[in-house]
Design a protein around this nucleic acid. Structure first.
Length: 295
DNA sequence: TCTATTTGACCTAT
DNA sequence: ATAGGTCAAATAGA
C-alpha cells in the first residue's frame, strides 16, 4: 500500500514538474521587464530543483518515512490518490477542462472552426472549434480559444468540451513514422502573425513511440515577414524528440549565428531562431502536451 | 472543384 | 432583453 502512495506521489510530482517546465516556456514568451522575467525564471528554476530533488528521493525510496500509526489515514489517502489517477468512466460529452497556453493550436488534434463571437468585457473574440471528424466519426469534442487581455499577446484561454471519440488518420505508429519522413508536407504548421511578427508552431503531434527527427524550414516563414525585412534567408533547424541534435543556417547573405536552443525540457525541446536583422521571434516548439497525447 | 474559414442570423439559457 | 453558442450561406484559397 505504501508503494502505491509513493507511486501516486511520484506521478503527481512528475505532473508538477511538467507543468512548471511548461510555465517556464510561457514565461519566456511573456512581454515583461527583464528584471521581472529574471525573477520569474529564478523562482521557476527553484521549483524545478525542488521537484527534481523530491523525485530523486522518492525514486531512491530512502527518504520516505510513512508513519505507521496512521495506517488508516494512509489507506484513505491512497484511495483518494487512486481515484485521482484513474478517473471514473464518464460520458465523453460531459468532459470539460481549461488551460492557459501560448500555443492554443497545437494540441495534437485537428479542429475545424465553426464560429467566432465577441464576448462582453473581452478585447478579443472567442473562437469556436469542433473536431474535424465530428461528422465522419461523430466525435463530439469541441474547444473554445480566447486570447487573454493580460497584455501578454501569446496567452490564450482554451476550453475543451467533450472528449475525442475519433481515431485520427495517423493514429498508428506506422502512420506517424510515415508522416515524419514526409515533413513538412505531412505536418501541419500553424502560422500566426502577432503584431506582424511571424510565429510558427509545429502542430502535428508526434506520438512518442520512437525518438524522431524534427525539421523546421523557415522558408515558408520568410514569405510572411513584413516587407521591410524582405531578405531571403533560409534557416533549417533540426532536432529530435530526445533532445536537440543539430542545427544549421543556410543564408545567401552574410552568415549568422545558428539557432540555439533556449530551453531544454526533460523531454522535447523548445528553441528560438533569429530570422532576420530585426530578430523576429520565430519560435518552433514542441511543447509538453505531445507527451501526453493519447492514441 | 473541394475544403476550410468567415460572419451575420438564429437559437437557447438566464 | 441580453449574452453566449451554433448554423449555414458566402467567401477564400489551394
Amino acid at each position: 500500500m505504501e508503494n502505491k502512495i509513493i507511486d501516486s506521489v511520484i506521478q503527481e510530482m512528475e505532473q508538477a514538474f511538467d507543468r512548471t517546465a511548461k510555465l517556464q516556456s510561457l514565461v519566456e514568451l511573456v512581454n515583461c521587464s527583464d528584471t521581472e522575467k529574471e525573477s520569474a525564471v529564478v523562482v521557476l528554476e527553484e521549483i524545478l530543483q525542488s521537484c527534481n530533488a523530491t523525485r530523486s528521493m522518492l525514486n531512491s525510496g530512502g527518504a520516505i518515512a510513512v508513519p505507521r500509526r496512521n495506517s488508516a489515514a494512509i489507506e484513505l489517502a491512497s484511495q483518494d490518490l487512486a481515484a485521482l489517477q484513474v478517473p471514473m468512466r464518464r460520458d465523453p460529452r460531459s468532459y470539460e477542462r481549461e488551460e492557459i497556453t501560448a500555443t492554443p493550436y497545437n494540441d495534437g488534434y485537428q479542429w475545424r472552426k465553426y464560429g467566432e463571437k465577441s464576448i462582453k468585457g473581452c478585447t478579443f473574440k472567442r473562437s469556436y472549434y469542433r473536431c474535424t471528424y465530428s461528422h465522419d466519426q461523430r466525435c463530439n469534442a469541441k474547444k473554445q480559444v480566447q486570447q487573454q487581455d493580460c497584455g501578454a499577446p501569446f496567452l490564450f484561454l482554451v476550453v475543451y468540451k467533450g472528449e475525442h471519440t475519433c481515431t485520427p488518420s495517423w493514429s498508428t505508429a506506422e502512420d506517424a513514422q510515415l508522416m515524419l519522413q514526409d515533413f513538412p508536407t505531412a505536418r501541419r504548421v500553424q502560422l500566426q502573425d502577432y503584431d506582424e511578427q511571424p510565429f510558427a508552431h509545429i502542430t502535428a503531434v508526434t506520438p512518442p513511440v520512437e525518438p524522431c527527427l524534427l525539421r523546421f524550414d523557415s522558408t515558408e516563414h520568410s514569405k510572411r515577414l513584413p516587407s521591410h525585412t524582405n531578405r531571403t534567408r533560409r534557416s533549417v533547424v533540426e532536432g529530435t524528440t530526445m533532445g536537440f541534435s543539430s542545427s544549421k543556417v543556410e543564408s545567401e547573405a552574410d552568415s549568422m549565428e545558428p539557432p540555439q536552443p533556449s530551453l531544454s525540457a526533460i523531454c522535447g525541446f523548445y528553441f528560438d531562431t533569429v530570422l532576420d536583422e530585426v530578430s523576429s521571434p520565430c519560435s518552433v516548439g514542441l511543447d509538453m502536451d505531445f507527451l501526453e497525447f493519447r492514441f
